[in-house]
Simulated scan of single mutants.
Amino acid sequence: MRCTTLRLTGLLAALSALTATTSAHAGMGLAVLPGLQGDGPVTVFYPTPDADQPVQRGPFTVQLAPQAAPARGNGRLVVVSHGSGGNPWVHTDLARALVRAGFVVAMPEHQGDNARNAADAGPVSWKRRPQEVSRAIDAVAAAPQLAPLLQLDKVGVAGQSAGGHTALSLAGGAWSPARFLAHCEAHIADDFNACVGTYTLLTGGMLDGAKKTVALGVLRQRFDDAEPVRHYDPRIAVAVAGVPAAADFDLETLRQPRIPLGLVTAGRDVWLTPRWHSEAVAAACTPCTRIAHLPEACHSVLLSPAPPMEVLGRTERHLLADPPGFDRAVLPALDERIVAFLAQHLVPASAAPQ
């Protein structure tokens, strides 16, 4: 069976099917739980009967109900894994769509790879991230106001970029730092920022050769471990990987994922060149569902609201700026596709929120 492509133009049928599971709750509650075992905080969004109010978080004004009483939804949790240098606020539109459908949403802050500290971005963080997702579930399970409203035997995970790498790991994929190094040695010119992140760009100038040489020298010192990295959590029952970092995976381990796996891909991703990342997974994973492919979108397709360009550095602006002509008006429909995919595998019809 080929990877199933669901076009955004065909959304009406899926949205109609989702109507039965849409929550009528008034607002989106916000709580911040302490992380376990030294982890960063876990930000949680949930259905509440209380009304939202404007809440300022960094450059974002978000409609939320902080510390509001939670309401019973569909009984299921989705953990969202942010990308490198990320935070919860760039995924609040997806969180709102999930909360409307009755989900509770938890977003762990990934240690050493978040908006406050990105020193461990890359394979160092990738090893920790799936464990941080598991401990985020444990943190929600220990929250007295939330735990009684949830069944945690089946949990969903969704992630963007490095968070997509997390989702692939939790779906059963195995990777290694040595595979990451081998990819960069073979494709440093064509996939430069997948290997070096936001430190610098290739510009076509006379310094490009030196940049590639220095980058490979650093990578060879840090990433030679060939031991496959895996993480298994039996509670994870479905995963969504959006524009995932994936060139370091053994694709044989993703041909038949252990759980349903959905993909979101972008045709103009200049941070993670699709042919070695998202498209490689889509070609290998025959039972996967391609939730959506947006040919004119770039790497920031799942950042909604998008970070203001003026708060980003030069390299980040280049890697994340929407291409000319891309219309973000399609993103709410994309969020609903993701919600529908997760609900299909987590929520029986009898569990629709009231």
Rank of each mutant, 00 (worst) to 15 (best):
residue 118 A to Q: 14
residue 112 G to F: 00
residue 110 H to I: 00
residue 120 D to Y: 04
residue 114 N to H: 12
residue 85 G to R: 03
residue 126 W to D: 01
residue 131 Q to M: 13
residue 117 N to A: 14
residue 113 D to G: 04
residue 93 D to H: 13
residue 129 R to L: 03
residue 102 G to M: 12
residue 96 R to T: 14
residue 95 A to I: 10
residue 126 W to C: 01
residue 128 R to M: 12
residue 126 W to T: 01
residue 116 R to Y: 09
residue 114 N to A: 09
residue 96 R to E: 09
residue 105 V to S: 01
residue 129 R to T: 04
residue 93 D to L: 13
residue 88 P to L: 04
residue 117 N to M: 13
residue 87 N to Y: 08
residue 128 R to N: 13
residue 117 N to W: 07
residue 86 G to Y: 08
residue 107 M to W: 08
residue 126 W to N: 02
residue 96 R to K: 09
residue 121 A to Y: 02
residue 114 N to W: 01
residue 118 A to S: 15
residue 118 A to I: 12
residue 100 R to D: 15
residue 104 V to E: 02
residue 91 H to R: 09
residue 130 P to F: 13
residue 85 G to S: 08
residue 84 S to T: 09
residue 126 W to Q: 03
residue 88 P to A: 05
residue 121 A to S: 11
residue 117 N to K: 13
residue 128 R to H: 13
residue 101 A to P: 11
residue 95 A to M: 13
residue 92 T to P: 03
residue 83 G to I: 05
residue 112 G to E: 01
residue 88 P to E: 03
residue 92 T to D: 11
residue 111 Q to G: 14
residue 124 V to T: 09
residue 89 W to S: 15
residue 115 A to M: 04
residue 113 D to I: 00
residue 120 D to A: 14
residue 116 R to M: 11
residue 129 R to Q: 10
residue 94 L to Q: 06
residue 106 A to M: 10
residue 89 W to E: 15
residue 129 R to M: 09
residue 126 W to V: 03
residue 118 A to M: 14
